[in-house]
């Protein structure tokens, strides 16, 4: 038997043991305390962030218990999560998507190493290379639950 599975079980290798929430993240609106619907748009990342977001819906993180759901249309969503730095062709679809969001809405920017400088409206927070638990914590803070 090799030793490294034991190490993997005993230690959190894929996850930071602790993280600090960015102080710039503010609760969005009181009305989202119990439920938040999210539309996610991938505007150009290395697929890494997609995996992190996908993990949120797995049994390990189970965001549904907090009332956080992913929807299929920006017209049904409260929060838009923008993944990565927009490529040239994705800028128009991103802007079109923002136009479709119903008021009140927020935008959470999740970046990789490259930071982008587009002036988007209603930005409620920025995350850089986050872990799933960090994203979950941010979402809860946006909802005003902690």
């Amino acid at each position: 038997m090799k030793w490294w599975p034991v190490r993997g079980i005993t230690r959190h290798l894929t996850e930071k043991s602790s993280y600090e929430l960015d102080s710039s993240v503010k609760p969005m609106n009181n009305i989202f305390k119990r439920s938040l619907h999210i539309y996610m748009i991938d505007v150009g990342n290395s697929n890494l962030l997609n995996f992190e977001l996908k993990a949120l819906q797995s049994t390990q993180y189970n965001t549904h218990r907090f009332g956080i759901y992913f929807s299929d249309s920006p017209r049904h969503s409260d929060l838009l999560i923008v993944l990565g730095k927009p490529t040239e062709k994705m800028i128009t679809p991103l802007m079109n998507t923002i136009k479709q969001m119903p008021e009140p809405f927020g935008i959470l920017i999740v970046e990789e190493d490259e930071v982008f400088d587009l002036k988007l409206p209603n930005v409620v927070g920025r995350l850089k290379n986050p872990e799933p638990s960090e994203i979950l914590g941010t979402l809860l803070k946006i909802m005003g639950r902690n």
Binding site: S73, P93, L94, Q100
Partner: peptide, 12 residues
């Protein structure tokens, strides 16, 4: 009232 085009995955 805000008027937008139909939602077509962000494409016109």
């Amino acid at each position: 009232v805000r008027r937008v085009n139909s939602w077509n995955g962000g494409l016109p």
